[in-house]
Design a protein around this nucleic acid. Structure first.
Lengths: 202, 202
DNA sequence: TGCTTTCTATATTGATCGATATATATTTAA
DNA sequence: TTAAATATATATCGATCAATATAGAAAGCA
């Protein structure tokens, strides 16, 4: 982003890589559960370097949230937006969610915002606004995809795009919760078709 | 429960009351966020009394979960089970969920298991089993209510009771998440009718 | 070559963490 | 009345917490 040579000794670690490592630690252990030691070890830097580059623990956490929001292309939404057939699009969305919810053995499952960040809303200043914004952005994208299907005549004109976008989002929370508790992908798929029909039915 | 006089000095605090206070603290601050100081202050007892009566912090947390599971009559489920009309029953279920998700100003919102305990599954041994059992029990009760409606002829014989029970449960997660992030009850009610129809529709 | 700037490494800060040792108070049983 | 048992109160344990002061190392600029 900024290749201008700066005066002084250049840092020997990669900012983005270190931030991604920090995100993983926060994801697995939570905000309180992640100690500065845990973070610096995973990031491969020392305490002073962490504080110089990222500020204090709270700022690092907020930066990790922003990194997640920006970098995460969010496969489920991408699938939903790119798949042509609207029914298949909904199905692929949920399939991707189920994948996210079950594939990682560690604590870094599902959605970082939904599983981890949301629990620190009342505790860490700045988290609430970020999670709220993420919800708004996600719903807009989901709603827009439904509106597109309406224009293309794939869905009736009175299709409640926004309500169904929210339904997808809320059902997603259920999948993520179940995955975190330990349900298998196979188990989660049992309701998949029923959920797809509920979303697109008019 | 046990009024038999025991040898030695009797404890001067109420075990159940203290445990309920501990539950509130864990609910608001999370497992890591709740310090022994926080707990003893809210419980009105000293450290040694806490350790003598409840074991260590982890055991106290598990006891708090059990207390929540046992004591919490879970208004949403009760409403769903007692309301005669099945459509009204589903609606009352979601209404109660919305109430839970939005009414408390503190961090003790929604469902303790879904919002707090689930985040400590990989960290605190014994939590996963308890949350899993809670999901199983809840789904059984929800499914049974639908089966009853089928027997009464209020729902068609091929109504997918279990899938719809899970749908209710998963949509519930969405409401709880939104409430935690800051959505108002009014906002959450916007999708209520659509969700009710999705659940009972055949 | 200095000189300035910035990063890294070591060491350590006061505070707080979970947990407990010790002493004292209060009860029952003998 | 005494002994045993259990609770509470005080004080504090070593470990770890988040955060930083200090000093040395590595870069650009003169």
């Amino acid at each position: 982003m900024n290749d201008i040579k700066k005066i002084g000794r250049p840092r020997t670690f990669d900012y983005e890589v270190a931030l991604t490592e920090a995100l993983t630690v926060f994801w697995e252990k939570g905000y309180d559960g992640a100690s500065i030691r845990d973070l610096t070890q995973a990031m491969g830097i020392t305490g002073p370097s962490l504080y110089a580059a990222f500020g204090d623990k709270r700022e690092l956490y907020l930066k990790a949230i922003d990194r997640y929001t920006d970098a995460e292309n969010c496969e489920p939404i991408i699938k939903f937006e790119t798949e042509e057939d609207i029914e298949q699009a909904v199905k692929q969305f949920f399939e991707a969610i189920i994948g996210y919810a079950t594939e990682h053995e560690s604590g870094a499952r599902g959605c970082f915002l939904a599983s981890s960040a949301s629990t620190n809303i009342g505790q860490v200043e700045g988290v609430r606004e970020r999670v709220q914004q993420s919800i708004v952005d996600t719903e807009k994208r989901l709603t827009a995809r439904f509106d597109r299907a309406i224009k293309e005549g794939k869905l009736p004109a009175d299709f409640p795009s926004r309500a169904r976008a929210r339904m997808m989002f809320d059902l997603r929370q259920g999948y993520i919760f179940r995955g975190r508790v330990g349900s298998s992908a196979k188990e989660l798929r049992k309701t998949l078709n029923d959920y797809v029909q509920a979303v697109i039915r008019t």
